[in-house]
């Protein structure tokens, strides 16, 4: 049905819970598979696909766009946090039962790549109440067409923290690469950076995986590719505009 001229195969499959017979599940395009171990794609559940369908649809208004994006972002944060370390921790329950649980370890902070990345801060705060959030502003230089760092403000002790780097759209990865370089220059080890994004391109994923093999990428969906303007295909348009100004 998708009349895309792109050569990459479109992974269309039936989506639904295990107990439901295959022919009762509707089909949808799911995330493109990539061969990198440090890339973690959210489980392609029907609900996630439905949320992505809402935010991709050009007819979805801004209120709905914000709401459905936030739901995906929360799921991304929940998944991202699973990569943080925990230690054994035994407790007693209100009814006196012993429970061999775990306790969260390690300090974290968020780092949003302005402006679209700031849209993900709410979702992070929903899961981590008083998390510190640093900001990085990277813009495309008009003359060189290359990303340029304009501004950053990061927690002073960032080298001791796990960093959740936030940017919803992961196209070529130009600004994300620059942001990671900034974090590394402040002493954050690569393996303590988690890059959270909603929609990624296979090219961006590949660039990253090769350049930062120890950094983990958590994404909701890997799309088919990029168009000539380096927009993700099919993508959802400009995330920042749809979230903030359109």
């Amino acid at each position: 049905m998708a009349s895309s001229a792109k050569p990459s195969p479109i992974p269309k499959q039936s989506v639904g819970p295990d107990y439901r017979p295959e022919k009762q599940k509707p089909t949808a395009t799911v995330s493109t598979e990539v061969p990198f171990e440090n890339v973690h794609t959210l489980s392609q559940t029907p609900q996630l696909i439905a949320l992505l369908t809402m935010i991709r649809d050009k007819n979805t208004d801004r209120a709905d766009f914000i709401f459905y994006s936030n739901r995906i972002i929360r799921l991304l944060v929940e998944e991202g946090l699973n990569h943080l370390p925990v230690v054994e921790h035994a407790i007693t329950t209100p009814v006196g039962r012993n429970y061999a649980g775990v306790m969260f370890q390690g300090k974290i902070c968020g780092v949003s790549i302005m402006r679209a990345g700031e849209a993900m801060e709410q979702g992070l705060r929903d899961c981590c109440r008083s998390v510190r959030i640093g900001k990085i502003l990277i813009q495309r230089d008009e003359e060189t067409c290359m990303p340029k760092l304009f501004y950053d403000k990061l927690p002073e002790d960032i080298a001791d923290r796990w960093c959740l780097l936030l940017d919803p759209m992961f196209a070529t990865g130009g600004s994300a690469i620059m942001a990671v370089d900034v974090l590394k220059s402040r002493g954050v080890p690569e393996n303590r950076i988690l890059f959270l994004n909603l929609i990624a391109s296979p090219q961006g994923i590949e660039n990253f995986a090769k350049k930062f093999p120890e950094l983990r990428v958590v994404t909701a969906f890997i799309d088919q590719g990029l168009d000539e303007k380096n927009y993700i295909v099919p993508g959802l348009g400009d995330f920042g505009d749809r979230f903030y100004t359109m």
Binding site: M1, A2, I10, A28, A50, T53, R56, D57, G237, D238
Partner: peptide, 18 residues
């Protein structure tokens, strides 16, 4: 859910679910 095809602001089609 049922299958639907939506159009993105960049004019691409996405085959998703509602």
């Amino acid at each position: 859910f049922k299958s639907v095809t939506v159009e993105t602001p960049t004019g691409n089609k996405y085959h998703g679910l509602h």
